[in-house]
Design a protein around this nucleic acid. Structure first.
Lengths: 330, 330
DNA sequence: AACCGACTTGAAAGCGTTTTCAGTTACCCC
DNA sequence: GGGGTAACTGAAAACGCTTTCAAGTCGGTT
């Protein structure tokens, strides 16, 4: 592996000059610049990022903390981060916080130890106080989590409003007995969506029936369990608001097993709009989260933040994606 | 940020000793060891990985080349890699080759520049000659790609056999008019599955009808397009072998749109067994690829390879996952 | 002809670790 | 008590790069 010294020798200049053309940090005569570039090509030179980082302070890597690899929403955000970082010279390095404070604390530690130039935190439970410390130490952007006092380093989305609108959509279609399959108990997204649900019901003058709200964990399996329980007890319902699309898939299947038609007998609305949702039978009406866009936006913002440039965070809406799993109540 | 020197001062020892307890590379008296450990805790010491890498040669980082972030199979393999690497001290760093030779070449370059200790290559098109070079330079494991002469650094799966068995399953259930929705034209997995399909047909004495094979690109949309075309031309078919589960979802929806029942009228078999497959209506019969396991195995193997220990690569089978989308032809 | 400023350039000092090499110590044995 | 050995320890040299600082070059001025 060629080093800066090798190419300096070959080009008959000093290491310093090589470094200068590498970063074009200051003027170098065209003649030497070309000699250096030729030498680099000839030796197939790849700067050692570790050494650069040690000497210069920048590692050109971004630490990304995500939650539960394999869950569609967080994966999409991560994907957006990757996209957004390509062609910036920065590479992302991922760690999984698993929605556990301790794990998160730990992996953030290893990220910091790797001297990342910036941090993107997707979701998670890290207490705000720790976050505030972190932000003083390192450019940080938080995604998919609402934080007071972080206006400009926080990309999130209004889950209570979205929960409200999802429920409202059902109500507008004549439904009044709307089951809610809750996500993980204390998960902020889940509780906010539930809050929106409650509010929409209240605004429509419908009393919240606790027999219609089932707890789950964002998995498809929890969707089938919930529907089975709902059906076993005999509270009638004409619509289901699922915590996310996976839950909706499970619910839809359970309904199918009982010979209940969607949307003729029961309507379903999901949340996320993951790729498969459009191909459910029937295609799933769902609240589309701009996951990839959030990731891209956070990457773009972080790069600006690191470079000390100004930037503006986009306002990303959650949009109702109307498809065919919701029908007017007859 | 505390350095090794700070803690050396605090503990009244030399940097060398601190380094020794850090790596417990040689004996240190308990007394000093404790002093050092206390100092580390007190100053909340995090070794600078960059410096370690530069000095010691190991970066504790693994480069992972994947293809098209967002595609279920590759994502699952990646996830397996992450899982398999946790608790090993190594962190993965991802790059997307996008199934393009140039991109792959380029990103492998940046990975190497980051001084990764090893490489996991998932799929991809890099020519074998280049791969052979790479392997001399760096511990490398290739996943999901079949390579001669790489027996012990290559984890793959028998796609032609799986294609054969999928088709055979349909044939065993009485189907003889079996449509095949092909994956991306020259994608090795796709052509191998097609090869298995052809062979199964031949073995059963069924002539391959080219009107029944449709080209696609592994996307759900290509599944609906294929079914629509199939239906438009009037070649009859009683079963569909989809390039992967996404394609199967698309095909299933298209059939539904035409009022064709699955599996009563047409059977569908998919490939991958992604999470959503079990919740399709009806649940999708599919060839389960051990994607996560492949990722985990490759991570485990790579760590051994780096450490110069011996290891054995597991033989991972593709298994028929029988569910309800395939029925006996009546 | 001496001088000045604007450009270029190279030497050398780090950056935070690991690792080699040469001591020190302490201990055991004859 | 001297000598040999084993167990520890510290100084210093890398690792490959960036950056500061001083020096050199050149053309144009006065």
């Amino acid at each position: 592996m060629a080093t800066i010294q090798d190419i300096a020798d070959l080009a008959n200049v000093s290491k310093a000059t090589v470094s200068r053309v590498l970063n074009n940090s200051s003027l170098v005569t065209t003649q030497k610049r070309i000699a250096v570039e030729d030498a680099m090509n000839e030796l197939n030179f790849q700067p050692n990022v570790m050494a650069q980082s040690l000497a210069g302070g920048r590692s050109m890597t971004i630490g990304v903390l995500t939650q539960n690899f394999g869950s569609p929403f967080y994966d999409s955000v991560s994907q957006g981060v990757i996209d957004g970082l390509s062609d910036t010279g920065y590479s992302p390095i991922f760690a999984d916080g698993q929605w556990k404070q301790n794990t998160e604390r730990e992996v953030i530690g290893t990220l910091v130890g790797r001297k990342v130039d910036g941090l993107i935190l997707i979701g998670g439970d890290v207490p705000v106080s720790k976050l505030n410390e972190l932000r003083d130490q390192l450019p940080t952007i938080v995604v998919a989590r609402e934080l007071d006092d972080w206006e400009n380093q926080c990309i999130h989305v209004d889950n209570v409003d979205a929960g409200y609108r999802a429920t409202k959509h059902l109500i507008d279609f004549g439904h009044r007995e709307i089951a809610l399959i809750h996500g993980i108990r204390n998960h902020p997204d889940a509780v906010q969506r539930f809050e929106g649900y409650s509010k929409a019901l209240a605004d429509a003058g419908i009393e919240l029936n606790s027999n219609l709200v089932y707890s789950g964990d964002f998995s498809a399996q929890s969707g089938v369990l919930a529907v089975n329980s709902l059906l076993a007890q005999s509270t009638h319902f004409s619509a289901v608001f699922a915590a996310n699309d996976m839950v909706a898939f499970g619910a839809r299947l359970a309904l199918h097993r009982h010979g209940i038609r969607v949307p003729e007998d029961v309507s379903i609305i999901g949340f996320d709009d993951q790729a498969e949702a459009a191909f459910m039978t029937p295609p799933l009406t769902t609240m589309r989260q701009p996951a990839v866009e959030m990731g891209m936006a956070s990457a773009a913002a972080l790069v600006k933040l690191i470079d000390g440039e100004s930037y503006e965070l986009p306002r990303l809406p959650i949009e109702l994606q109307r498809r065919e799993s919701v029908a007017r109540l007859r």
